[in-house]
Computed example of a mutant assay.
Amino acid sequence: MKPGVALPNVTFRTRVRDDSIDGPNPFRWQDVTTDDLFKGKRVILFSLPGAFTPTCSTYQLPGFEKNAEAFREQGIDAIYCLSVNDSFVMNQWAKAQDLQNVSVIPDGSGEFTRRVGMLVAKDNLGFGMRSWRYAAIINDGEVEAWFEEPGICDNHDEDPYGESSPENVLDYLKSKKEQAAA
């Protein structure tokens, strides 16, 4: 994806809490579209290979969560974490990470990830098809800035991490704000 390109129109299948449902699993299906998430907002979208995996759970997701206020100060309205995992997994991961500031997006079928050109095979790790690691600043549904890890390919021997880090995205936003003020 390049700056100026609109995100694909995709519907995500999510599970949301519904207190009108009795029993131990008070959740219902709710479709959420790309427009629902991105239209009229300036957001950070970051994607990673999988929920509960080491780099994703130790650095990337916690870093975006911890820096949420700093991102808001740079004009960011929301922070979304997307992975090619189903809604059940993403909801449990959000709960395990005690997320307050980052919302998770399940791309269970990989449709969004495929359409933005980031779907890769990770069969060498037993994962199947997953997302290559990236981050983006999305302004009203259009890519403003794109941060992609180098070396995108199927069954990569490593899991590069740096370009899509929260620190790198925050540095970019601060630099852009300073340039606008000058």
Rank of each mutant, 00 (worst) to 15 (best):
A68I: 02
Y161F: 15
R17T: 10
K176R: 15
P24F: 05
N67Q: 11
P160F: 09
F64P: 01
G63D: 01
N9D: 14
I138Y: 06
R17I: 10
P150W: 11
A78N: 10
M118S: 04
G151F: 14
E178M: 07
S165I: 00
N124C: 07
M118L: 13
P160Q: 10
G40Y: 12
R130P: 01
Q179N: 14
D123R: 05
K66W: 08
G75D: 07
K39R: 15
D35I: 05
Q97C: 07
I138G: 01
W146R: 09
F38R: 06
L99N: 02
L48R: 02
Y161N: 12
A136G: 02
A145D: 05
L82D: 10
V169I: 10
Q30K: 14
W29V: 11
V16H: 11
R115Q: 15
F27M: 07
K177P: 03
R17F: 08
D31R: 11
E65D: 05
R115E: 13
F88A: 10
M1N: 06
Q97V: 00
E149C: 04
L82N: 12
G151V: 13
C81N: 08
C56Y: 00
S57T: 06
R114A: 13
G4W: 11
K176G: 03
H156L: 12
A180P: 02
P24H: 06
Y172C: 02
R115N: 13
D36E: 13
S164N: 09
A135M: 04
F38T: 10
Y80P: 04
R42W: 06
L48A: 07
V43C: 15
W93K: 07
V116T: 12
V16I: 15
Q92E: 14
S87R: 09
R13G: 06
L173K: 01
R15D: 03
V116C: 08
G126K: 09
N124R: 08
T58D: 13
S20Y: 00
G75C: 10
L125Q: 12
P49W: 07
N67Y: 07
D107S: 13
E148L: 09
R115G: 00
S175F: 00
F64W: 03
N91W: 03
A78P: 04
F64Q: 01
G40A: 09
M90E: 03
A78G: 06
G40E: 12
A6Y: 04
Q74A: 15
N139C: 00
I79C: 12
G162V: 11
H156Y: 15
F112R: 04
T113W: 07
L99W: 05
L45R: 02
A78F: 08
I44C: 08
E73M: 08
Q92S: 14
V116E: 04
P24T: 07
W146Y: 15
A145V: 03
W29N: 13
A136S: 12
G128N: 00
R114K: 14
E144K: 08
I21G: 04
V143G: 03
V104I: 05
D18M: 01
K39F: 05
I21C: 06
W146K: 03
L45T: 03
